[in-house]
Design a protein around this nucleic acid. Sequence first.
DNA 1: AAATGTAAGTGCGTTAACGTACAGACGGCA
DNA 2: TGCCGTCTGTACGTTAACGCACTTACATTT
Lengths: 235, 235
Amino acid sequence: MTTTQVNQITNRLLDALPFKDREQLLANCEAIELIFGEVLYRANEPVLHVYFPTGGFISLVTSVDSSANLEVGLVGNEGILGVSLMLGVNVAPFYSLVQGAGSALRMTASSFLYELERSPALQLELKHYLYITMRQLAQTAICTRYHLVEARLARWLLMTQDRAHSDRFHVTHVFLAYILGVRRVGITKAANSLLKKKLISYKRGDITILDRAGLEAASCECYRVDKEIYERILA
Amino acid sequence: MTTTQVNQITNRLLDALPFKDREQLLANCEAIELIFGEVLYRANEPVLHVYFPTGGFISLVTSVDSSANLEVGLVGNEGILGVSLMLGVNVAPFYSLVQGAGSALRMTASSFLYELERSPALQLELKHYLYITMRQLAQTAICTRYHLVEARLARWLLMTQDRAHSDRFHVTHVFLAYILGVRRVGITKAANSLLKKKLISYKRGDITILDRAGLEAASCECYRVDKEIYERILA
DNA sequence: AAATGTAAGTGCGTTAACGTACAGACGGCA
DNA sequence: TGCCGTCTGTACGTTAACGCACTTACATTT
């Protein structure tokens, strides 16, 4: 995914930590690049590292009936991937796929658990992040049930814009269909509708957000709800 | 909800604790009766108590657009209600409604947090329970998206039978419609189909499971998946 | 025995999304 | 310049579920 990368992007969870805790944590992190399409975890397989995305972002996908898929979460520089380790389970809950190339800080599972033990501030923050994750899972469940594809697409584009830190990113209709759990043609139809309203433009996988406010109006309330919960809990 | 109550039902999470931890915890619990239809939490409002159901059980419901609802969890004697307190948030994530009358053990939020501090065994167990909850939320999301009402109904009946500890319980089509997020008529149709297959019988809200194995076959794989995760993580 | 309220069943047109197939458009590579 | 793979658009019949209205069935109360 080609995103117009803004430099100096850091991770919001790390930024919110007290200086000492952050330094201690950073000392144990390794800066890496997330590659588009890279699979970080497979469901039910071991979690070897946690990731604090700074520039890149990751889709959490769940599957059923060995062919039906659905994105249930999106992790960018507002979050962390692998937080379920702190629940004492080293098995990944979801298939985790790099959706936006970019930088991240990576830590081994064992040093994460060790540092977590040492930093109550990190503990509390990540507990809050877990709570947010739970609520977002429920929000996704009800959104997927009730909202039209067009509104869900608008929501997804907004969430992705936030995490890509750019109003342009690369994603094809086929991929969006996979993420939202609908037919590719369903995406084409919805995307075309947003195009006609001049909210977005796209060409062979390169999407540009033209009118963010308009997109927010076209999206379901779930975008706003998610954001509100995040801000309220992590404030 | 009238369930043929089996005596001596205890809570599986409590049972799994070491003797000392359990005794300590029980000393701070109050035995109460959950009343059918009682609202234990409202979303975004304070959590004053945690509940370990023994006989009764509780639906977790999320809402959107101020009229669309969906059950995202079911808590019986295999679980605990209010576990999100351990994430450092005292605001309820979901509307929590007593769905099956029966006994429970209740603890104030503050003594729960105090006892949690003192019992690493309880901490670990509830962290595992949180992990399970996350996975079940995702399972519900994808199930609601892809599975037919009849299969979802079968799944719900099985989950409820497990938690009611009885093959008979009270629930109307109207209520099921609310829980599964479909029209009442959709439930009538699905229930009628299960009736014709002689898997269940019902009359004015009294449902009886006639053929559990048959119901399992009629349900989607989500019932089995949920159960497997629970057993694997809490074993 | 009648009245009332709740539960469940039926019917009918509507709709969003489905599966499948095919055609056009674009871009990189030979 | 022409080819090929990928991306997007269109078309057509199908389907599960929708909204709404009405009927039938049952149980409790008076």
